[in-house]
Amino acid sequence: MELSRRDAVAALAALGIGAGAVGISQVGDSGSEGPPEAELPDDAHVEAVAVAVAEVLYPSAVTGVDEFVSEFLSARLSREGHSDGVREAVATVDDHAQQWHGEQYVNLDDNTRDRVLRELGTDTAEEDPEGTVAERVRYYLVNDLLLALYASPTGGELVGIENPQGHPGGTDTYQRGPQ
C-alpha cells in the first residue's frame, strides 16, 4: 500500500503542524556525510537516517516511504523544541552504528539496522522526551515515525480504520459497515 503526500499532510495535522507548514524547508541531498562529532546532524542526514529507520519500523506492505518521511520530517524539523530532539536521536543511532558495526546507519543492511535499534533498547523503552537515551530515541525517532504512519489514512487502512485518531477524516466513516 503506497504512502502518499496526502498521508504525510494528514500525519502532520495529527502531529500539530498544519498543512501550510509542509514543504517550507525542503531537505537537501540525502547523500551527505555523517554529522561532525559533537554537532547535530543536518537536515539531509536526519532524513536519510529517518528513512532507513522507517524502513525497519514500517510493515513490508508499505511503499513510498522515502517521500512520506521526507515530507513529514521537513515540517517536523521546523518545530521549535522538537527539532533538536530528533537530531539528537539520529546522532545517537548513527553513533551506535558506527561504534558497534563500523558503518553509518544508512549503510547497514536491514537486519543490522533492526539490531541497532534493539541494542539501543528502543524496543523495550517507553517514550519519554526527557528520559534516558533509549527513551528519547523512542520518543523522537521511533514513535514519531510510527505515529506519522498510523495517524495517516493509509496507515489506518492497513489496520482496518480509514479515519484513525488524529486524522480529520470526517463523520462518514464511523457510520459505514465493513467494506
Binding site: A13, A14, L15, G16, I17, G18, E126, E127, Y139, N143, L147, A151, Q165, G166
Partner: peptide, 10 residues
C-alpha cells in the same frame, strides 16, 4: 494540534 498529540502519545 500539539495538545492533541499529547492526548495520543503515551
Amino acid at each position: 494540534l500539539e495538545r492533541q498529540e499529547r492526548a495520543i502519545r503515551p
